[in-house]
Design a binder for these strands. Sequence first.
DNA 1: ACATTCGGGACGGCCCGTTCCT
DNA 2: AGGAACGGGCCGTCCCGAATGT
Lengths: 199, 199, 199, 199
Amino acid sequence: MVAVKDAQHSKQQILAAAFRVIHQKGFNRASVKEILADTGLTKGAFYHHFASKEAMGKAILDEIEGAIGSVWLEPIEALDDPITGIQEAMRAYAGSLSAEEVALGCPLNKLALELAPTDDFFRVRIKQIYDGWRSALADALRRGQRAGTVSQMIDPMGAATFFVAAQTGGRGLAKNAHNADILSVCADHLVRYLDTLRP
Amino acid sequence: MVAVKDAQHSKQQILAAAFRVIHQKGFNRASVKEILADTGLTKGAFYHHFASKEAMGKAILDEIEGAIGSVWLEPIEALDDPITGIQEAMRAYAGSLSAEEVALGCPLNKLALELAPTDDFFRVRIKQIYDGWRSALADALRRGQRAGTVSQMIDPMGAATFFVAAQTGGRGLAKNAHNADILSVCADHLVRYLDTLRP
Amino acid sequence: MVAVKDAQHSKQQILAAAFRVIHQKGFNRASVKEILADTGLTKGAFYHHFASKEAMGKAILDEIEGAIGSVWLEPIEALDDPITGIQEAMRAYAGSLSAEEVALGCPLNKLALELAPTDDFFRVRIKQIYDGWRSALADALRRGQRAGTVSQMIDPMGAATFFVAAQTGGRGLAKNAHNADILSVCADHLVRYLDTLRP
Amino acid sequence: MVAVKDAQHSKQQILAAAFRVIHQKGFNRASVKEILADTGLTKGAFYHHFASKEAMGKAILDEIEGAIGSVWLEPIEALDDPITGIQEAMRAYAGSLSAEEVALGCPLNKLALELAPTDDFFRVRIKQIYDGWRSALADALRRGQRAGTVSQMIDPMGAATFFVAAQTGGRGLAKNAHNADILSVCADHLVRYLDTLRP
DNA sequence: ACATTCGGGACGGCCCGTTCCT
DNA sequence: AGGAACGGGCCGTCCCGAATGT
């Protein structure tokens, strides 16, 4: 009855455990050994699926990219009134995080801060993700401009950039304070900021 | 005339080198050995001045606290129109950073992200610094409310929190992108946001 | 048209690749993985054909034994004047090696030096090969003694031993120096030495 | 009474143990851990004295160079009749080796065979040692030519090269066979070869 | 007091030969 | 014959303490 060897399952298990440990300790302090301890697998399995710890980190980035897509981008994908959509996503997000998730902070920001100065590959990959996020937001705002729900005066990309920055910063502040209220406050302010983008 | 052993000088040297290395690599990856390599001193000296690597980290936090004070707080300390003061500080800050400083990002944020989940002492100490920053900003806004330069409708602490969060987030985004323009964009948006706090 | 699974072919492929890698890196440093990389096969195939890496090493020794036979023994198998035969084989050998082959040295000697102290089975097997070589040379010299082309005064086995030793030593020295001239010099001296064995 | 920390002593201890283990297992299979097990020291000590395992290997080569000097070169340093001197050194050497030493073989040859194709630094350093050996022998022979104890017809460097090669080869053969007689036989033949170099 | 040298161990990521199941 | 997983080994790094000057 021992679970048969299932490559995909093992790889996903490792990825999930790695995400958890890295989210908590950061990439460098997350030891391969500890990651594997959560899975019951051994180093042989790890290095069968990933060429190196770094390669696994890249795979995790892919997952994070997907998560950002489903939380922030899909909900507003085809909206004529993107501002309301983003506001709702923001509120849903700020309200959905458990105390633990608040204390852990944004995984992408964590990796960005830790790895950007050291490893250029990671930096560029993370930049891609952030750029994708900002672009999708800007696209939505442009759609709104065409639909008349967003002011013609504003610069979509600039506004999107500011939103991503402020959102990320708010979550970082809340994390360090172990305080979800900070997140709420920032969310409120961002919602109000978004209102100023209406015509 | 080789400088005789000068305790204070050695300690400052270590602190300066440590700040540099930690800013770049983070606390954990900054090895004591590498820090000392920059100074010409040896481990004996290090452990004479600091009980542990962690203790040295705390000393660095003190320095960072001072730096925040002189960049963000002193310029607006007694202003009747704090909003204009903060706007000027913001613009000065965004304009003053070299490409290298942009790429390194905010040292406090870096430490916050890295150490908060792992080491509670650090987290609390960093929280003190952020709280001090936010409080000082809130105080300034309250002073403005009394002077009539700031709207009575706004919550000073909330606005201060949002400002710190957005500023920090902007610098993080710019760092990862190796792009000072992102910082400028965020600064512009923050300046505009601050305008909305006027009566 | 792709060759169907051909057991013998696969085994030979592995053996050939293994010989190459082992010749270059030695037995221990030659990883199974690297050997297989050259062949396109996988570990499953390897352990299908060989019980262990060690077992494969033994198969390689068989190949080496054959190669020594065809280079050194067959040419003088039935000669009445073995000294001239050996001299010619020596000169042919020294002249035929490419710069690369010089730099790689004698594969048998390499294995002998590396494995003799650690693995007794290998040592004994290699000893067999060296003994076979020496015996065949001694036999040839005895044949020459009977034919009157070799002095009665010399000890055939002793001379054969010295020849093998000096030849091997010369190739080792040349290998380390990346210098075929050393091989030539040693070959000349051995030719002259062989002349002293004539009546 | 625990031995006080004595840098020089510790370093020598490590070097001695390393020589032993490397002589037996070769450089790659000689693990730092095993080397240290013999000494009672730990990795901290090892990496305090040596930058890397490779660096330690180079230090060992220095020791080997010294040993060759005292066994082969010093005894004939200023002799007018170098041939007799070399013959005596050869006989002394062949007679002095214990069964264990025979079974271990020449440490320099072992390193040469193992590391030459992989690590060019080692190869060149080992070449230096061999070249030094050959040159010293050639010098001695030239001195003999001037003194009239060595034939004018022979090429000193060629003869020295052949001597080193044959001696090394003989020791290798004896090692693999676990048989000191092979060494004696080769020594005898070399002695006789040396006689042919007299006027 | 200040600084150095020496050494201790625990861990870090990675690789290796091998086995098991398909 | 292939793919997945095992488990232990390897070299090197890290933070730090103890003994030793100066």
